[in-house]
């Protein structure tokens, strides 16, 4: 479903992403791990067509993200980190707007369905600026899945959320993945989240992809490690606390 070949992004003398090769199967929930500044968000920005790679290529369902970026944009959903949406518009108005941009002529039915799935119907007419961070994050996910995307990209989706908010987001992602077969690509540095939700894992450090494989396979290979945390530190280096 998602394939990259020597994907690279350079800024003058600094290489943010260095020859990343990924192959993520359809229906996977892929957790992309790395410390701050490792190159996670830059990789995700290239896959979501926001940045052009300096070299290398990436394809989603066989479609090149640079050459046919508009086609790719029609197939993906995206939730950036710390999204605030349009505070002066209501939840409904925000979703109608993004639904229309995704090509839905009459997004009303789809929005009702999503809000029901997210148990969010009572806040339909609330202005987004009046919502808590967890609730706003749910609206953010709603806009990302409104058009049933083939791949859903999320950048630190649970960062700054309380345990209940984190659990809600996790359940939504599992449901979307199970019901629609949506492939999920999730940037995170919360290892506990990865073990609870992901089927596949990738680790990036200093722009280089160190590993990318199914989680159970990884756990088997590092059977001497007690936790994913230990595996992460063995692969990415650094001192375990």
């Amino acid at each position: 479903m998602l394939v990259t070949h020597k994907l690279t992004k350079k800024y003058q003398n600094f290489t943010a992403v260095d020859g990343v090769d990924l192959n993520i199967r359809e229906g996977a929930i892929f957790g992309f791990l790395g410390h701050n500044g490792a190159g996670k968000t830059t990789t995700l920005s290239m896959l979501t067509t926001l940045l052009k790679p300096t070299s290398g290529s990436a394809e989603i369902d066989g479609i090149d993200v640079v050459k046919e970026f508009l086609k790719v944009r029609g197939m993906i959903g995206y939730l950036p980190e710390n999204v605030r949406l349009y505070g002066d518009l209501t939840v409904w108005e925000n979703l109608v707007f993004f639904g229309k941009l995704s090509g839905l002529r009459h997004p009303g039915d789809s929005i009702k369905e999503i809000l029901k799935t997210l148990t969010f119907t009572e806040w339909t007419n609330a202005k987004v600026k009046t919502l808590s961070k967890g609730m706003r994050q749910r609206v953010g996910i709603a806009q990302a899945i409104l058009h049933h995307p083939k791949v859903l990209f999320l950048d630190e989706p649970t960062s700054g959320l309380d345990p209940q908010g984190t659990l809600d987001i996790r359940n939504i992602l599992l449901k979307v993945n199970a019901d629609w077969g949506t492939t999920v690509f999730m940037n995170t540095h919360l290892l506990s989240e990865v073990t609870k939700i992901c089927t596949d894992v990738g680790i990036i450090s200093h722009g280089k992809l160190l590993i990318a494989e199914p989680l159970n396979q990884l756990e088997q290979r590092y059977s001497d490690c007690k936790s994913l945390e230990e595996i992460y530190f063995q692969i990415a280096g650094g001192n375990e606390v």
């Binding site: 979501t48 926001l50 999204v83 949406l85």
Partner: peptide
């Protein structure tokens, strides 16, 4: 840009 919506807008089929 501040609200993060520009990134969302540009991942929709828009230039």
């Amino acid at each position: 840009r501040e609200n993060g919506t520009l990134r969302i807008l540009l991942t929709h089929p828009l230039t």
